[in-house]
Amino acid sequence: MDAKELRGIKGVVAAAALFIIFFGVFSSFLQLEGNVARGISEEYNKLAYKMAPNNLASWVYDYRAIDTLLETGVIYVGAVVSVLVLGRGLVRLKVPEEDEIVKVTGMDLKTETMPVLLKYFALPVVILLIAYGLLVVLEAPTSGGGGFQCGVIVSSAYLLSVIIYGKKSPFEIKKKTLVALGAFGWGLYVLMGLPGYLTTGYWQYNVGSDLWSWLSSFPGEVPEILKTVFGEPFKLALQLKEGVFYATSGILPIINIGEAFNVIGAICLIFFAFIYGWSDPEEEKLE
């Protein structure tokens, strides 16, 4: 249907339908509001207030890991499906004849005519963007960051680099590397459910990480200097009104790094498939 067809009675009916939808959706949103407990769940704060560095991590404690696992699965499936849809020769429902296929020319990217500002500042910006992505993923336990945000930032750096420099992109990742990154991230993520399963019986349960006690069981003692400098990894001190509490976010930082790798792989793969059509520049040379 085209918007131009909506004249006369059709338009009135369309507008009336939109009004009905508006009030239906609005009333359902308002009903949602009454059914939600206010504030942070007190239960979590009572159970886990000595452990959670922020309350994102507190409600997250038993829920976020499995939730984010599904998230990583979704993004990976999305990448794989769009690559399959766009890929050459992988999925063809019905082979169209040669003259029926619309020829799509690639993006015209000329680095010679690039403005000087872009030419000299794009690469520093790309490097700083990757560093920012790493910052976001590593501050995940104490802020609103996380693996997905890091993945999107790094893959936007990848897209920026590809769009500005074209095929001479300095941040060029081969598709095998991308697939490996995604698979490595997901694998790391799934395996991090194992410590929780072994200790509590629940998959992806967030267990505190006390690395030094693990290491001391190995032959050779950990030097005191290392313990002093590194403290306990991922452990933080919370200065609250009731006193100083020591908090560890457990396996969440490692889980977030795994998710970040997965999302970098998946989203760069989507961009890759849209830009190059699932064919490396090197493969084209061979052809």
Binding site: G39, I40, S41, E42, N54, N55, Q239, L240, E242
Partner: peptide, 12 residues
């Protein structure tokens, strides 16, 4: 976000 000098019991 739990800031320094927040109270555990008022915070939620």
């Amino acid at each position: 976000i739990l800031e320094p000098d927040a109270s555990i019991f008022e915070f939620p």
